[in-house]
Design a protein around this nucleic acid. Structure first.
Lengths: 415, 415
DNA sequence: CCCTTTTATTTGGATAGCGCATTAAAACGT
DNA sequence: ACGTTTTAATGCGCTATCCAAATAAAAGGG
């Protein structure tokens, strides 16, 4: 009757091999090009095991040997045979939905971007079928532009803002869709006949940071993405952290100013109502009601206008950024209190505002972080390009192809 | 240059055995008494492996056979030999520090409480050496009261409120100590010559909930302990979640009412300033300044008085509870937003206030939880006794003796 | 031209888990 | 009372894994 709450995998030789195989793949990926001895040193696997595993990987075509021995320090002895990921082993496609843009990219097995397509179109509040049509077309043309066929693509990864259940490929809620509980994964899979995963857009950038960016060699950090929604990506213990149901948290739903708002029936003050690009721009536009600025602020380039207005001396617009920065800072401080990460990475289009947003943000973090852990966390800004999202999508997908036996990266701590 | 950020254990037969051995131990613990076949069914390990592992465990004296076959449903065939944990395999001691009480308990290998000692003494703001003297004496007398010697104790676990680095046994900050960065673990280990671990008190109760309480068979839940400090324990994916440095988060440091307080230099409004028992009682006492109630409210039984005053119709005292409940509710709603746990368990002495605190708390959670995940989380109350803490300390320690290969429980999800 | 050095592979030994068949132990049935 | 039936636990053989030591391979140095 006890019904094992969390059924866990039993250990057998197969799991053993899967673990070590992943360790080897991970070592190769991290180094780009590496010899067997070095793999053995880094993974602390015996040379025998490394040789056996690399042999299997070569057999499977996942890695390729490279004759040149580009290490000038090692001159004597039998030259090391360098190994690297076989770029042609797989091709993956990543697509990211944003309210005013669809970004699509194709990468190879090394997460090199082979080609991108960016569709600047306002998908906001279109029916889901229309948006998926656009995605499908974009994916097809992006794939063909790189000289590949759709059948050559091993996996497709879709990133959307909002709340996503990765396991089922269901988008519970997204500001992009008016519908709820959309089975995006299955839908796209039916359309393109390519295995498809769906995840929160912020998880894409989080994975990208872990693999290629500021999060390299860090086993704990946070990513806060400030765009139409405010997303949170968490790497903890080397793994992507997900909510209990496998869904990604939405930072914008945090309450940051509860005062006097709960009791009287009005909605509590959520972060998304203060610090999202939507909130910032609509507040600014309301301020400018009736002036010629209003229309500009409500347009697609609204953020640019708001920033230049504030930089041009408009105290009220600057005040909006300031308040947004403060609210974000407090939310981030609360996250620091909970997670104590060594690094917090900020990303997203709202960062165009630069110090207008960042200065009050940093001040608020400073003031609101409990002194017991102040100073442990560094806040960095990452200007994300389309490539970043694409490589994140690739990372998210390639992990599966690498055969990671656990959810993301790293099973457990050291011994 | 790549410097593998999170070095991870390689898989070898030894790890394999450790994993399966732990699975078997865990199955035995969960059932109390269980036969080999049932272990095989639950763990999905082959009967052969179960037999081999149980043989080793019997050899090591960690488990014992029990002749009776108490299953009346199974009558035919060879009776199953029931196995259970050997109570005498180990004895552990748990100690919990609170501002006005030291609680100590000794348990056996089954986490049965053999004896407890409770010292109602105000340790608040005593120098650490004095407090540790009290702990040492209490531990010695508690052990001897159970008929054991100090040398028989395999492990000691100390729970303190505040911020604790379990790995190093250092207490970074605690309201109990005026000093910072106390090496409590090493200190007690020197005094008693018993391996000692230190952890946040809330982690003790969290583990206890997972092993014996509401958290049984749940792989994700939160525990919020409302006492002198407001602690947070997190079980995620079957594991105790710790901050990046292995330190436990302190919920009391969360900011819940930032309005107008950051900019003007005053301290931001932390949850501990609104909803801890200290805050509640001191606010109530300030309200009652000059009246005969004030002294009672500041006394050790202050919470009892505050509750009866509020229940007796004192609107202002009731209002304090209400505000505390609301603030807690908002903080909990934010946690639900982040973690989406199926259950949140409330514990701690502030729960004496009952519905005075809980009604506004539930309302605030209801109002502040984003609708996308409303309804997924159930809030339950657990009245914790001294035994609970003690068994939590036992659980925390016994895990190590069980030989858990990973931090706590469960290495990774299924496949 | 042979030897040293370094790297990769191969061989032998040990341990793990699993499946099948065997033994062990009890209760039922005639 | 004895054999049959049923279920539990355990040998035995198999394969797969890892590791350590030995072997083969490829270069440079004397």
């Amino acid at each position: 009757m006890p019904a094992d709450g969390a059924a866990m995998k039993t250990a057998d030789p197969e799991l053993m091999r899967a673990i070590n195989r992943f360790l080897v793949m991970d070592a190769i990926r991290r180094s780009g090009t590496i010899s067997r001895v070095e793999i053995s040193e880094r993974t602390e696997l015996s040379p025998t095991t490394v040789s056996a595993i690399t042999a299997a990987l070569l057999e499977d075509g996942l890695i390729v040997p490279r004759q040149v021995a580009p290490t000038p320090d090692q001159v004597r002895g039998r030259p090391r045979i360098m190994l690297e990921l076989n770029p042609a082993a797989a091709s993956v496609c990543g697509a990211k939905l944003a309210p005013n843009k669809i970004t699509i990219a194709v990468t190879n097995f090394q997460a090199d971007v082979l080609g991108t397509v960016s569709i600047p179109i306002r998908v906001d509040r279109q029916p889901a079928s229309v948006i998926l049509d656009l995605v499908e077309d974009g994916v097809r043309s992006c794939i063909e532009a790189t000289g590949l066929q759709v059948e050559d693509i091993n996996s497709l990864c879709l990133g959307v803002p909002g709340i996503v259940e990765r396991a089922s490929g269901i988008c519970r809620y997204s500001p992009i869709f008016s519908e709820r509980d959309l089975k995006l994964g299955l839908d796209l899979q039916d359309r393109l006949k390519v295995p498809t995963t769906v995840d929160s857009d912020v998880n894409l950038i989080t994975l990208a940071e872990q693999w290629f960016g500021h999060g390299r060699d860090l086993s704990d950090f946070l990513v806060v993405s400030i765009e139409h929604t405010i997303g949170l990506g968490i790497i903890h213990g080397g793994e992507l952290f997900r909510g209990a149901n496998g869904l990604s948290p939405d930072l914008g739903d945090l309450i940051v100013s509860p005062n006097g708002s709960i009791g009287n029936g009005s909605l509590p003050g959520r972060l998304s109502g203060i610090a999202s690009t939507t909130a910032i721009l609509s507040t600014a536009a309301d301020l400018a009601r009736g002036t010629p600025q209003e229309k500009l602020l409500r347009g697609t380039r609204g953020m640019d206008h708001a920033v230049s207005l504030a930089q041009g001396g408009d105290r009220r617009i600057a005040g909006i950024f300031e308040e947004a920065g403060r609210a974000l800072g407090i939310a981030i401080a609360n996250l620091i209190t909970l997670f104590a990460p060594p690094k917090v990475i900020l990303a997203g289009s709202a960062l165009q505002a630069g110090e207008l947003l960042l200065a009050p943000l940093r001040d608020a973090v400073q003031a609101a972080t409990p002194e017991t852990i102040s100073g442990v966390t560094e806040i960095v800004v990452h200007e994300s390009s389309d490539d970043t999202w694409a490589r994140g999508a690739a990372a998210l997908t390639l992990r599966d192809l690498y055969g990671a036996p656990w959810g993301t990266t790293g099973p457990a701590k050291k011994r």
